[in-house]
Amino acid sequence: MMLKKRARLWLAMTLTVSLLALSFACGGKKDTAEDNSSGDNGTTAKTFAPKGDEGTVTGKVNLTGTAPAPQPIDMSQDANCKSKNPNATTETVVAKDGKLQNVFVYIKDGTLADGSKIGDWTFKTPDTEVVLDQNGCHYVPHVIGLQPNQKLKVTNSDPTGHNIHVLPKSGGGNEEWNESQPGGAGPIVKSFKRSEILIPVKCNQHPWMKAYIGVIKHPFFAVTKDDGTFELKGVPPGTYTLAAWHEKYGEKTAQVKVDAKGTATTDFSFDAGGGTASVENGSLEVMPAMDLPMLMKH
């Protein structure tokens, strides 16, 4: 009888220790990157609420010099692409009458009228989804912006399959992903945990396809339209560094002061002859050819 009691005691202790170990193993360390409500730097911050005195930042992005002509894309490898989009051209530089499209304009830094830094605030994640469509074997739109944890909905309007390969910077907190989406398949919904300027997207199936996603903690960003204009609405009064980012020409910044209920105007200008993209092209690494006499001509 005593032995039985002792055995029960041991059994109970073993079970308790096992359960404790299991609970530590499963729920121990929480990934701080999952929660961005406290801002990028992980510090506790106040949540921004509009006061009704917000202003607007507008402007346009100019391209000086002769813009490189868009080149026709040879889509022969996929008959579906070729028939749906026979006149496809490259989209790296899309300019009309000296105005540059697809420039991501955003508030990079700055101080609000009350002296607080914009980076110290947190912003509510919008409920709306941002759509990136694959249509005619190119991405529409070419450049998009969203906030951390906001839903990105990737759709495929083509009769052919695509393979979306999102390439954030390694170690930046956002995960690389790579998923197939056959023609007619439902949307893929994802989100990004951290701010990042800008994440390249490529299609592993069609190498000419490229898009860029700007993830930014606040909603004060815009992408220039075909007339080169942009508009950032609901900006709290303050003094900011405004940045304009282009995939080929890199980033330019300007200072802008937003008054209560005011409209500040800032224009940017890129030189068509320049060409230093600030984002890696995401191409597969290429091995240089070696001399191998056995298989070379002799």
Binding site: Q71, T90, T92, K202, M209, K210, N281, S283
Partner: peptide
Amino acid sequence: DPTLIKEDENNF
């Protein structure tokens, strides 16, 4: 040159 590859600019 592999470093000049820019697939979105037609330089594969």
